[in-house]
Amino acid sequence: MGDIDTWTFQEIAFRAEMDRHDDPESEKEAWILCGEDPATRMRNIVELRNMIYERGECHPHRMDDAFLLKFLRARRSVPARAHRLLVRYSNFRDQNPHLWRDVDWFGLTKLGHVFEGVLFDRPDVGRLIICRLGQWDPDDYPVEDLIRGCLLLLEIGIMQPKLQVLGGTALLDCEGLTMRHMRHFSPAIAIQAMNVMGFAFPLHQRGVHVINCSRVFETLFHFFKRLAPVDDLWKRVRFHGYDLSSLHKCIDPECLPKRYGGHRQEVSLEKWLTKIKQYKNKDFDNDMRTLGYAVD
């Protein structure tokens, strides 16, 4: 594929990031990946909404069908499980308003290549999201901005019905990570990161893969794990050390950037947000404003 073809494909993919329509052809994937049946979809939404009113455990900022469907899709279309997730999400928002409220979302382009993605979404991987912690300079911006950046990436991502169904796979690259970085990760920050990873976020999390990591990092990870809720997500965390062949057993190189022995071109958060701003519309602005972000 030539440079012009690659550029054209990326521009089409960037435009598609604003797509808010359910594709009828994706109903089979929704059934396989989310247990979603068009015949019972509306009934499940109504049941979830009734649970929210009857139990009174949370007060979501939205209650419309499209919003509630995100939580159902993230929990195999089971209203009770979706309700538990929605309670976690709502509590997380209430406890951490600074991660959303009046945040200049476009200002997070400063994170550069700390977060990257691959705009090649497959049913077995979903959207591949890469976090390169070693690219972060703690002197430039606080660790809270890392949480804000990851959260923003996910909030915008799940506006797409396609990604609500396909979900995502996380790749945590620890190359360049030192104690200079690690000393900023307090238990409170670690819990915030785990919540964003999937404990309290309506993302169909396909897996979390850690590469270029030492035993020290793995030990710290398991320490923080004890502070988090018991969840099936832990079964999908894999440590690969420095072994790319181990990573390839879990993620097809067809979906990976060349840096990891793959065939794809990664897109930095900086470039992605720049393109989002270029192609955004009134619906996007309204959604962002409702979430609490500053919208010009």
Rank of each mutant, 00 (worst) to 15 (best):
M1W: 14
I4P: 02
W7L: 12
A13H: 05
F14R: 06
E17Q: 14
D19S: 13
D19F: 10
R20I: 15
D23N: 13
P24C: 05
P24E: 05
A30F: 00
R41C: 10
N44F: 10
N44H: 15
V46W: 10
I52Y: 05
Y53C: 06
G56Y: 03
D64T: 14
L68C: 12
L72N: 02
L85V: 04
V87K: 11
W100F: 13
L111C: 09
V114D: 01
G117S: 10
V118P: 01
F120H: 14
R132C: 03
G134Y: 04
D140A: 15
G149N: 01
L154P: 00
I156L: 15
I158T: 04
Q160C: 15
K162A: 15
G167I: 01
A170P: 02
L172N: 02
E175P: 03
L177T: 13
T178Y: 07
H184C: 07
H184T: 06
I191C: 08
V196T: 08
M197K: 02
G207V: 00
V208R: 00
H209E: 08
R215H: 14
F217R: 05
E218D: 06
T219Y: 15
R226Y: 04
L233F: 00
W234G: 00
W234I: 00
G241A: 10
Y242R: 10
D243P: 02
S245Y: 07
K249A: 14
K258M: 14
E270N: 06
N281G: 12
T290Q: 12
L291K: 12
Y293S: 06
V295K: 12
V295C: 09
